[in-house]
Each structure stands twice: as C-alpha cells, then as structure tokens.
C-alpha cells in the first residue's frame, strides 16, 4: 500500500495546527492533521504541536490513546518534533496548575517563569516575542537546526520552560535572569519551545531540515 503521509500533525484538541500544516506544505512536506492511530503509525514523522494547558493536553492525549501511539512511533526511530507545549509534554512532569505527569520521553520537568523587574526593564509572563537561539557546545549536524545559525531569531510564546539534562540541550535562550533550554534533541526526538512555523524564513529552514530527515 502506498504510504501517502509524510508527517502526521497530531490533533488532540484545541491547538492551532493550521500554521504548522501550512509551514509543512511550504517545505514540500505532505502533512496531515490527524488523531488517527493508523495515520500516526504509517507516517514518516510526527509533529506534536500545542498551546494551552498541560494537564488538559495530557488528559486528551491519554483519552485518545495518542500517548501509546507516540511511544510506539518513537521506537521505530523515525523523527518526532514537539513544538511549544508539545516540547513540554515530552518531559517527565509539569507544575502547571497542578503537578501533572508528562510523556516522560526525556528526563526533566517544566517550570514557570516568575514576573521580573530588573532595573527599569520588566519581563512579563507569558514571554511573548522574538528571541535568539544560542548554540550550546553540542553539534547541530544531527538535529533539525542543521541549516540554521547560532543567534537566529525565533518567535516564542510561553509561560513555562523546560529544564533538561545538559547533554540533550541544543540551544538556550535568555529572558531576564533566566537562561533556559529553548530546544533539545535526543536520538530521534526533537523539541522546540519556539514556533518555527511563525519564525519567518529562519523558522522555515527547520521544516526544510525535517523534510530532509524523512525516509525517502
């Protein structure tokens, strides 16, 4: 049977999946917004997007049995990309609203930004806007950032950030006193706190790298 889905964009509720879909299409990826377990299984890669509340999202993933579909997919070695809340969900837990267990694919947890006032500068929460991604000592060759450059601007919208082990962190970004993990890669799992689909040409390069990563 012909495998006609390159990327399954996982639909588990109220996220804005459409800009992710448009960015995939722009990069020549045949993407499909879906919550079908079969679609996920036969796709060449999956994207877990997401905005909104962590507990709500975990609840929806479990209810639709998407958590197991994701675990099984990761086992195949095909690429997984988590975006924004989709990055946070792969961690072990979050303290958003109440302590909630995540998918636990990567060691670490999600913490909330405090509102900061440093000298005369305020750092509102959520953190909304463009920020630089700074390269860690890790190489980007095997990540989805292989076409990007150290210091590229990306668009962020988030109140929580991920704390992960240093080995998996591919970029960090700064917000006031915080220096936090803005993207990570662990084997075939890639995750980004920023929205590559909303980050202009630099962001679209990430979709292009994802396209290159898919089995032909």
């Amino acid at each position: 049977m012909k495998n006609d889905i390159d990327i399954a964009i996982i639909d588990y509720g109220l996220s804005n999946l459409y800009s992710v879909d448009l960015a995939c299409k722009k990069a020549g990826i045949n993407s499909k917004i879906t919550s079908s377990l079969e679609d996920i299984e036969k796709s060449k890669g999956i994207i877990l997007p997401g905005v909104g509340a962590f507990d709500h999202a975990m609840h929806n993933l479990k209810e639709k049995k998407l958590d197991h579909a994701i675990y099984n997919f990761i086992e195949t070695g095909k690429p997984f990309l988590g975006i924004c809340l989709g990055m946070q969900l792969i961690m072990e837990e979050s303290s958003e609203f109440k302590k909630t267990k995540g998918l636990g694919l990567v060691k670490g947890s999600c913490l909330k930004f405090d509102f900061q006032k440093i000298e005369n500068f305020s750092f509102p929460v959520p953190n909304v806007g463009w920020n630089k991604i700074n390269k860690t000592s890790s190489t980007w060759n095997k990540t989805l950032l292989s076409k990007n450059e150290d210091g590229d601007f990306m668009y962020f919208v988030h109140s929580y950030y991920v704390e992960a082990e240093q080995e998996v962190v591919t970029t960090y970004s700064n917000y006031g006193k915080y220096e936090y993990c803005s993207s990570l890669s662990y084997e075939n799992i890639h995750a980004m706190q920023f929205h590559p689909e909303k980050s202009g040409d630099k962001g679209l390069k990430i979709y292009s790298s994802l396209s290159d990563n898919l089995e032909k």
Binding site: L14, N16, V51, G52, A53, L85, P126, V128, V157, H158, S159
Partner: peptide
C-alpha cells in the same frame, strides 16, 4: 484563555 491557552 483556559481553553485555548493564554498565549492565544
């Protein structure tokens, strides 16, 4: 805000 996330 609860349903779509503050950021929306």
């Amino acid at each position: 805000s609860r349903l779509f996330g503050s950021s929306t």
